[in-house]
Design a binder for these strands. Structure first.
Lengths: 376, 376
DNA sequence: TTGAAAGCGCTAACAA
DNA sequence: TTGTTAGCGCTTTCAA
């Protein structure tokens, strides 16, 4: 078993019996003290703690798990990519898990790997985790496999239910709405949306928030262009959109795509924000330093993780208690230099649509264009 | 214990005795088969496997760990930030760990948290991990605590040794050297370095590689400016450097700082790459889409993680076998548009230094400047 | 090639 | 308030 080093001749790692012997109590009493169980006199508690300290005693987790049927660990299924969102979730989750007295086990899955979520889940369940977090729910996987421990799904819409599934709202919809409204309030007639892959719940949330904002303001709903979160896909979408001279504002579902999109605009000779405004999503570390500095919204990763895990742990420890409704997190819109009022008169576009209320499918129609094609 | 769901009335999870009974063998034989031990007849093996399959049997890891003294898990101490490097390491490590038949436990530490590494390590050791990975070694912590399981340190220089410590070379030095040489070969008289925090081994590696390149080319070694990896620190450094009209090329220790630095140049009215060339480090996802697209080097996270963990697992499983030397990974320099030959004649600078061979301390001297101060 | 018995170091149930 | 007695479900002797 692993311990902090016993230097040199390594006397055998102490067991709880050793502590008991030294403290002059029974082994069970040691267990009581260490588990903060009631009915231990202050005196005995002190003696046990001192003895444990003196011996450098640490409980054997494997034995605890075997005897109690609980590992006090939580598993997280996360995406095997360094995308800012998933990485930030993981950090927040680990912090929250540790604060709650649990430990974290991680299994990654790669997007597009069929059964990836299932096998990551299976690996975690094999390890005996007491609960599972699915940090970036994607269609496929979730729901295909059923699990007999509580599950926390971050960011899934509340319509997603199953036995023992708890959800923490990310509020991506509200953030998206705020981002869109920021543009509308600057005077843009409408706002285009460069969406994330719609298999991701978080991408759908953002799209829904965008749509709500448009409806609330009575603005036209232009067709949606779908990217894959990458700057490259944002660039490609940017070139599509540029052809349509009517586009004056775009809300991108993440900063990477926003940056790619801006790049495409600049190459096409359109200025940001003078000709076209762009809002991103995430506030990645470089967002403030790209050109132009990016207006974006920031997700409350830590707060949501903390909140979600508190729920999860409650379900694990007291399955019968009613759950309190999760509090919404405040919206943080960070206005920088990539947004401005629309240009005085929109560039006359041959792409102007006849139907004012075109409801976009997942893919926007590429409009004709003669954009210069500089590859970055 | 947690298992894939037993729907409905949940018959009790099967144990190895149940499998044994069904297969008509002893429980020990089941254990033999499942552990791929020798001396099992093909016939018996088949029967056991079938029985296990039929019952949906899965071994109880806690019991295995308790009986064997090994958890078949590896712990990683990682930085509690969404920095691209640490996040990428984590992904690569998880993948490698799983491929080797181990599972991953994670403990994060925040930079600047005194004893953070120590307590993260302690948490992992408490969990009984069979080995530990320190993914971004920072001074403090490492070496202060001693551990009785093998440790893999990624990216620490080979001078770092201790009992049971293995190292995988990241090759950051070679990458840094390549980045610097790229600039020198473009014709720059010398190359400035915007370093990472020197408490990080990876930052020191990069600095060393830069220095080597300069020496090999007989170039002056200007004072080093030290940042903290953030774009903000790159921006600040950029404003310092701009005052010095002699600077025509900068190698930044990561892309975020490079982007901040470029931003400062643009605000100061200097063009990149016409007036000043910048090379980054990491190839973050947006690097190709910022303006100008960033020349950078890419770290072989996955390959190094795979290699390092193979070593670690070998030490865990066969402590006595000699380790093979780790193979160096190929250098990947990605040339984009942020680098070019130096301007015909350097802008006459009042900051020109008298001593040609000034060896920089960790902080560069701020040169006087009258840079416009637009905050991003 | 297979099996029987004896723990691994705890927690749980019950007794005192 | 404390202690005693049984396991938890495997792996590890050792014997057959």
């Amino acid at each position: 078993m692993t311990r902090l080093a016993r230097p040199g001749g390594s006397p055998p790692t102490p067991r709880s019996v050793d502590v008991a012997r030294l403290a002059g109590v029974s082994q069970k009493t040691v267990s009581r003290v260490l588990n903060d169980e009631p009915y231990v006199s202050a005196d005995v508690r002190r003696r046990v703690l001192d003895a444990a300290e003196e011996l450098g005693y640490r409980r054997n987790q494997a034995a605890r798990a075997l005897a109690s049927g609980r590992t006090r660990s939580i598993g997280v299924v996360t995406l095997g990519s360094a995308l800012y969102g998933p990485a930030s979730w993981l950090i927040g989750i680990e912090r929250a898990v540790r604060k709650l007295g649990y430990t974290l086990r991680v299994a990654t899955t790669i997007e597009g790997d069929p059964g990836g979520i299932a096998s990551a889940l299976a690996s975690l369940l094999d390890q005996g985790v007491d609960g599972v977090v699915i940090s970036e729910p994607i269609d496929e996987g979730v729901g295909l496999i059923s699990v007999d421990v509580p599950v926390l799904v971050l960011g899934a819409p509340p319509t997603f239910t199953a036995p023992q599934v708890v959800t923490a709202r990310v509020g991506a919809g509200r953030l998206a709405r705020a981002a869109t409204e920021h543009l509308l309030e600057l005077g843009h007639a409408t706002v285009h949306h460069l969406a994330g892959p719609q298999r991701w719940y978080s991408a759908r949330d953002r799209l829904a928030g965008w749509r709500e904002a448009l409806r609330a303001h009575g603005a036209d709903e232009p067709p949606v262009v779908e990217g894959d979160w990458s700057a490259a896909s944002g660039y490609a979408a940017g070139r599509e959109l540029t052809g349509d001279g009517t586009v004056t504002a775009v809300f991108a579902a993440n900063d990477d795509m926003a940056i790619g999109l801006i790049r495409a605009q600049l190459e096409a000779g359109r200025r940001v924000p003078e000709d076209i405004s762009v809002v991103g999503f995430d506030d990645i570390p470089v967002a403030a330093y790209v050109t132009p500095p990016l207006t974006t919204v920031r997700q409350p990763f830590d707060a949501v993780a903390r909140q979600g895990l508190a729920l999860l742990v409650q379900v694990i420890e007291k399955p019968d208690v009613e759950l309190p409704p999760a509090a919404d997190q405040p919206v943080e819109l960070i206005v920088r230099a990539s947004t401005a009022p629309p240009p005085p008169r929109p560039i006359p576009g041959r792409g102007r649509r006849a139907t004012p209320h075109a409801h976009g499918g997942p893919h926007g129609q590429p409009a004709g264009n003669e954009v210069p094609s500089t590859q970055p």
